[in-house]
Design a protein around this nucleic acid. Structure first.
Lengths: 235, 235
DNA sequence: CATACAAATTTGTATATACAGGTTTCCAAC
DNA sequence: GTTGGAAACCTGTATATACAAATTTGTATG
């Protein structure tokens, strides 16, 4: 097991403390000076952790005042997804496989261009339904190139985060991505899976996800009913 | 005129170079060492600029390799909005005032709770239509508390960015925010302004924007037709 | 020619330090 | 008591430095 960088450890510790409610919105985090002493680190290191918390919307900083806790980002965190943060992080969030991973030729990648290497390698395709509180929320179509993923189709992704899976099995981590957002009318298929009326407005999210393995991208298309939950993000 | 921090200047210079196409996707930026020499700065300063470019999706970094240009984020950058970056940044993007700023009592702030100070001060309310390429794209409803904004309603916001306006007139800058995203059916009013058919799916964005002035928030509701343009963001 | 290894290059992490600028606190002067 | 201002505290910016880790390049050896 490789060790996380220290600024990451501080980030995770503080993030969890906020998410668990040990800090209430409005609270002041310990000053950078105090955090340095507590973790025996230099200030730039602590600041890097705090910068990440600001970027993820957990805190807000004010010069001369301190770091004010804003609380854990609420809602279904698919827009944020910053680093390993995000995570829907609710115990009642389940994943159901609709279509098991299978090998296909590429046709297109939700509007994103694919490179020759990906084209040649073929496409691992699968579909999942994300269920929250017994109600279907996301319909998730994933495509990724069949490059250096031995036995991928043999594994069972049920209730396992794809990102965690790729990280533990293949040492592939997410480094960033691009997404396009549209409002569309639900078609028959989406209607059935998401339990909405035909023609209801739903969100369509086309995502190209960059990874630590150069040239290896994950393409994902998400359909989402926002009747019960809106998508939430911070900036 | 106050001076921008140096890391910000480097960021802006490189960002513009990428946006203007002086770097093509796939190109390598000069190494951090070279940039240090070019701008006569220390490496942490240059790195801070590059970190920002990564966060905004302009480049991608690989250890041992360098900074790879990804290109300017395409689409209408309302989700990104990272810092002062974002900016739609297209010359054919215009703003039309539908309803001039007027003083109102608060009723609600698009689902966000408002504090007592804001409640008491009253609400400056106005509506704008954002037009791109002769086609209406955003319908934008803005509410902000009437605190320390002398003569606000007297100014003309036509074709002026609200954020730039607040910064130059009142030294208020945007530090972050939260947004909720929904897919809805266009009602009669939205249909007329956005030129879509009644019942068409459109995006609704409820935003609470934090500023450098503590306790001063901007509340904004945006309706957006994604028929021609999708909203694009990076993470 | 091909392989293996060493060296150079480049980004990642971390420390120590300094000063500027905003905020709060507290005390002295009026 | 109130006001003014100094001091303490806190975050923002910037530098100089060191070593680790990944990648590329060059070189020498078989």
């Amino acid at each position: 097991m490789e060790e996380l960088p220290r600024y990451r450890q501080v980030y995770e510790t503080l993030r969890r403390a906020i998410a668990d409610g040990r800090y209430v919105p409005g609270d002041l985090l310990p000053s950078e000076h105090d955090l340095c002493q507590e973790y025996a680190l230099a200030r730039p290191t602590v600041r890097k952790a705090l910068d990440q918390l600001v970027a993820d919307g957990y805190i807000q900083k004010h010069q001369g005042k301190g770091s004010i806790v804003k609380g854990a980002p609420r809602g279904i965190g698919i827009l944020s997804l910053t680093g390993t943060t995000s995570a829907v992080g609710r115990p009642d969030f389940f994943t159901r496989i609709i279509l098991k991973p299978e090998l296909r030729p590429w046709t297109e990648a939700f509007g994103f261009p694919i490179n020759a290497l990906e084209q040649q390698a073929g496409c691992i395709y699968f579909e999942r339904l994300r269920v929250l509180d017994d109600a279907p929320v996301f319909l998730d179509i994933t495509m990724l190139p069949n490059i250096g993923l031995p036995n991928f189709t043999a594994y069972n992704l049920e209730n396992a985060s794809l990102f965690n899976f790729l990280r533990t099995q293949y040492q592939i981590t997410v480094t960033g991505g691009t997404q396009q957002l549209l409002a569309i009318r639900a078609d028959k298929r989406q209607r059935e899976y998401l339990h909405v009326k035909s023609g209801s407005p739903i969100l369509q999210l086309n995502r190209k996800i960059e990874t630590s393995r150069p040239g290896f991208h994950i393409y994902s298309q998400v359909f989402c009913s926002t009747r019960k939950y809106g998508l939430i993000g911070t900036f």
